[in-house]
Design a protein around this nucleic acid. Structure first.
Lengths: 281, 281
DNA sequence: AGTAATTACGAGGTACGTAACAATC
DNA sequence: GATTGTTACGTACCTCGTAATTACT
């Protein structure tokens, strides 16, 4: 008994005739007829009531179809498990404290490792190290280097925050601003900005923030409202909104250096990424 | 992917080497090696870590084996279901009010239908007819003919009860006895005697009965004790115990005629038995 | 007539075994 | 040197497709 025969049996049951099933299975009808007979011989009893030009499942046949479906379902689960495994083998999970470095990383990886899928997740600074050690993530992106013997830690990129002011704003002509200058204002803020949110909350204790979860809506609002906003020097942020001018924020806390961290005993596909990044930075 | 390959995979896992597994599977080692490679190709990834002359399951391989076992278990359930079906197709369930007619029937069936398995069950007179109609049993053996249009009912045999007295007993010399003669005595009685038990209880209201469930123990007691017992003229009872003499009981209630009853729309294997019995009685 | 199943026959592909080779214990 | 796994090669078997046959609608 082979799986192919069970697939055939199920198809015959579904189609009602051997002819129709044969067509579906890309077989000739005599071939399928013989194959079914082989299955019956193997099981030791007929599965169909045969009149001269008609077949119909009998009691045994109905039981056979039922069990065949079970066997094939088990086979499918096996294939699914493998698909999942293959997908996981191509996926690298990155936990990052901010979105920009994951964009950077993704851009550099698709260039060198086109088969690899990066699965980014913005995490809190406090949990990111633990996630790396318990292998919930394969790579971590932090603001501070992690100098542990079983970790590989390399600088990845820097990012600087700018005020994103409408041309009509009183800040529009400035070359730069400080936190002090803009504290107390109302800001439109994209919610998924990781640690930058805490930076802003600390630096602008008197500001009002309007958080927007949806990226598309956020961009729309940047266009249509004249509220102050933020942007960074990440290439993905550049030139996206007309009528707004990025004005660098002077303070040190508006500048971040990101580090890429991996465990030294990470899987091959992870460590070769780290190596590649180190060599090309 | 075919079941044969999964069987091979599981065997390789069990044996640890391809060579050993090949031997178990009655294959040459190169053939098995290729077959495993085909499976790996089909699943899209290697299942073994290969050193030059050693193979070891890798992560994917362990998952594969696990799932292969599931698939093969489903296959086994299918085969078991068929074995069960085949067994049921050869089995005829008989509900009888007494054991002797089932012995008679079994003896006659093995002679004519050697493939058929008779599964006898001693049932109470009150439930036997219902069991036939709800098809819990295929054949019924009763004391009274059942004259219903959807039933086939034919006489099967007669059985007569005898006192089974030790030679030392005061009844030993008698040609026959009546219930009256022996009421008040103590009897050793085999428990599985169907309706005879009720016959005795009614005919011997003052008697004491010592029931014995185990057939072997009962025979032993017949040999070793000098309690009165019962036997019948069924061939299977004849000559079984030395030192005891069967003494016919005169009364009408000690004689029974058994009828074989089947539904008219019973399966082929049942009705051909009834036909055979009718023709040869 | 048209459809559906089985049987007969020839061909091609697949998987087998043998043999040779490589490498480890 | 014995064991284990892979590769190469020729062969045999197995299953496929085509064609012919039969029967039912």
């Amino acid at each position: 008994m082979e799986l192919e025969q069970l697939r055939q049996l199920v198809e015959v049951e579904r189609q009602g005739t051997i002819s129709a099933a044969a067509e579906k299975l890309h077989l000739t009808q005599p071939s399928l007829s013989r194959s079914i007979k082989r299955l019956e011989a193997d099981l030791g009893q007929g599965l169909f009531d045969r009149t001269r030009n008609r077949i119909e499942l009998n009691e045994a046949g109905r039981i056979a179809v039922e069990h065949a479906r079970d066997v094939l379902a088990a086979e499918q689960r096996m294939r699914d498990a493998f698909d999942d495994l293959a997908r996981r083998a191509r996926t690298v999970k990155v936990g990052s404290i901010a979105p920009a470095p994951t964009w950077n990383l993704t851009a550099r990886i698709v260039e060198r490792f086109p088969g690899t899928i990066l699965e980014p997740d913005i995490l809190d600074e406090k949990v990111i190290e633990r996630s790396l050690f318990d292998r919930t993530i394969d790579l971590a992106i932090t603001r501070k280097p992690i100098a542990l013997p079983n970790c590989e830690c390399i600088p990845l990129m820097t990012e600087s925050l700018s005020l994103y002011a409408p041309k009509s704003s009183k800040y529009a002509g400035r070359r730069s601003v400080s936190w002090n200058d803009i504290d107390g204002e109302t800001f439109l803020v994209f919610e998924q900005i990781g640690f930058w949110r805490e930076v802003c909350e600390e630096a602008l204790p008197n500001a009002t923030a309007i958080f927007q979860k949806d990226r598309e809506v956020f961009i729309q609002l940047l266009h249509s409202s004249d509220l102050l906003g933020f942007t960074t020097d990440a290439p993905q942020n550049r030139g996206s909104v007309e009528g707004r001018i990025p004005i660098p924020i002077q303070d040190a806390s508006a500048h971040a250096t990101f580090y890429l961290v991996a465990l030294k005993d990470a899987p091959e596909r992870v460590s070769e990424i780290v190596t590649w990044i180190r060599e090309t930075t």
